[in-house]
Design a protein around this nucleic acid. Sequence first.
DNA 1: CATGAATGAGTATTCATTCAT
DNA 2: AATGAATGAATACTCATTCAT
Lengths: 211, 211, 211, 211
Amino acid sequence: MGLKERREREREERKRQILAAARSLLFEEGLQATSVNKIARRAELGVGTIYFYFAGKEEIFAALQEEGIEVLQAMILRDLEGAKGPEERLRSIARTYVDFSREKGDYFDIINYFLSSPGVMFNEDLKERIDQRGNRVVSLLVSTVEAGIASGDFRKVDARKFAMMFWATLHGLMLFRKLKTTMLRGEDYHALVGYAVDHLVGSIRGESNTG
Amino acid sequence: MGLKERREREREERKRQILAAARSLLFEEGLQATSVNKIARRAELGVGTIYFYFAGKEEIFAALQEEGIEVLQAMILRDLEGAKGPEERLRSIARTYVDFSREKGDYFDIINYFLSSPGVMFNEDLKERIDQRGNRVVSLLVSTVEAGIASGDFRKVDARKFAMMFWATLHGLMLFRKLKTTMLRGEDYHALVGYAVDHLVGSIRGESNTG
Amino acid sequence: MGLKERREREREERKRQILAAARSLLFEEGLQATSVNKIARRAELGVGTIYFYFAGKEEIFAALQEEGIEVLQAMILRDLEGAKGPEERLRSIARTYVDFSREKGDYFDIINYFLSSPGVMFNEDLKERIDQRGNRVVSLLVSTVEAGIASGDFRKVDARKFAMMFWATLHGLMLFRKLKTTMLRGEDYHALVGYAVDHLVGSIRGESNTG
Amino acid sequence: MGLKERREREREERKRQILAAARSLLFEEGLQATSVNKIARRAELGVGTIYFYFAGKEEIFAALQEEGIEVLQAMILRDLEGAKGPEERLRSIARTYVDFSREKGDYFDIINYFLSSPGVMFNEDLKERIDQRGNRVVSLLVSTVEAGIASGDFRKVDARKFAMMFWATLHGLMLFRKLKTTMLRGEDYHALVGYAVDHLVGSIRGESNTG
DNA sequence: CATGAATGAGTATTCATTCAT
DNA sequence: AATGAATGAATACTCATTCAT
């Protein structure tokens, strides 16, 4: 069994090595320019080897997506530290998502890639993992909302549904960043995002706090 | 001058013919599989001819996007007819966007394509046109909100900002449809959308109606 | 006959217009990027019109080559003004060719294009004109040499052959400019050109002057 | 390690195969008509395979240029065998370059292609190799001149600079072959080349021999 | 005279994936 | 377990030229 374990460990090691290559390419050249051949070259591995560890290109990207979600989670947690009170926490998460989409644009792109590509489908394993990681992030939102409800800061909303909606709004707005030069020309994009967050946060504030 | 006019008309005719080919390909094979060569083949035209009428692939897609926005607008207007009152109108628009993203998925995809691809940029003319069409749709949202404010049904919010946020939320949620099999597994996607619309509509309802 | 003349004049006018467009393209985008369609667009003429005035692309380029040769001639004459004595005149011409190849690189390129392309052949008319212009430039060299011979500054060489050789050397050296980063790496290209001119000039200096 | 060696050998084999196809195309259809797709078809290989062995079109051409330089070198060495004395050796090299440009015109063209195309640049490796091969040929000239100087046949000139100039003159004159039907019409091209060689050789002949 | 629509073979290059070794 | 050679369809786009009007 020691053998089996070692095998397993080596396997994980190799996967990490491949992902490191893929990640550096992603950040250096962007999603589109990141091909399997390039990954192999950078990882100093044969192309075939890549396919031994990953079922295909999408799976590598999916792994990168996982990473991205983890990075996002870490950023949220980090920023959450200084945030006092449910409302401030909600705002903090929003702010972090905005930062994430700007500073870790390639991770954001890859998340958006899977969200936007109708064709791409994961296998069950992958689904499971994405599911978990994603939910962990959403959970941060959910529990923030729940905490607010418990403390009376927020109204009794369906915390999970609200969280999903909150995220959808943010994600949509991040895509709208591109409209800065067209539909949002002359308008203040940053103010729009601020408005949306204000509005959504305000929309669940407990009545006692509204007055 | 009759000649010039005829030329112009024929030119428009050809463009329509090319767009028809592009559109049918888009709907049959999807965005990704729609290439300039295929469009030319289907239109029974030389590839060069395509480039005589359109500056490049993106311009064809942009035209298709315009179409998509117009289709969306028409759908919204059609559905709006039966809707009485600002609130019901807002809900109607949301419902229509959901329908649009499902029934005219390829048009939705192409709109999302331009929203999601950081690299792609339009020339000024195109920007202008997209701008106008897009704003026309957003205007439907804006004026609905304004009407609601005027009638006292809605609170005095920034109508345009709220409209953009409303659209962002819907757009984000439409992308989340893909999560049905992962993060939203076991949850009711439809109910989520319903919840979001309810929440947003509720969030601007005039205080008199809230109680 | 007044009509005929007017026709002729208008025809020349149009050709000039086309060449102006071609020339500006040549200098802005280079030889390779200059296509007939682009020329037509810039000249605000139909493509067909271009073909009414020029037999084809090569003919336009040939006309540009003529221009280039004329520019070269003008430069040589201008620079020759200050040059006293046959030897200094010869050096002046050499210097001018070097300047021409650097400052009017696109004209140089087009001359080299016809010199280098084995396939391209002119019609008789064109041949005649190129012939004349080219000879006019070579004549400047020839007569400089002849003057030197007459004055005793130069030995009694075959003036025309020497002139052709002189030009061939210069032209070859201009092409070698590209070797600066390879074969001539670490060597002084400018000094090489200087050496060559010195050597050739020295090689025909009359014995009385050599001492 | 036997495997690695075999791989390497096979790799070289394939490259040779591709170059054979490219070479035969070059000689049959000329430089311009030689495209990567045609090379692939002739080599009975997929296009992608070509790119597996060569970084791109220019690299194939560069390899062909190397070949050409080697062919030239071989020709020079072969012809040099019968040549006695520095002067005769210099003349021999000149004669060979003339023959090379006529008999191996396509190799000459490809050498001229890299000399004439301002845009095309090699990578460092390629530079190095071209550098070496080119210098090997120039060395033949240089050492011939040096031998002449040592023997007192030639004056004490800068051997390398003279050699480069000598080559430049020859190369320029080879390009002028095209002028046979225009500027050199009625003149004896062959005599011009002969004159140039005579002149250049004479120009470095030691004084004792001049009288 | 002038137009400009139409062509379609052509360009270099990329790509994810397979499979025999 | 690992390799890397091979594929070939696919990509967007260009071009000189023709010809009916």
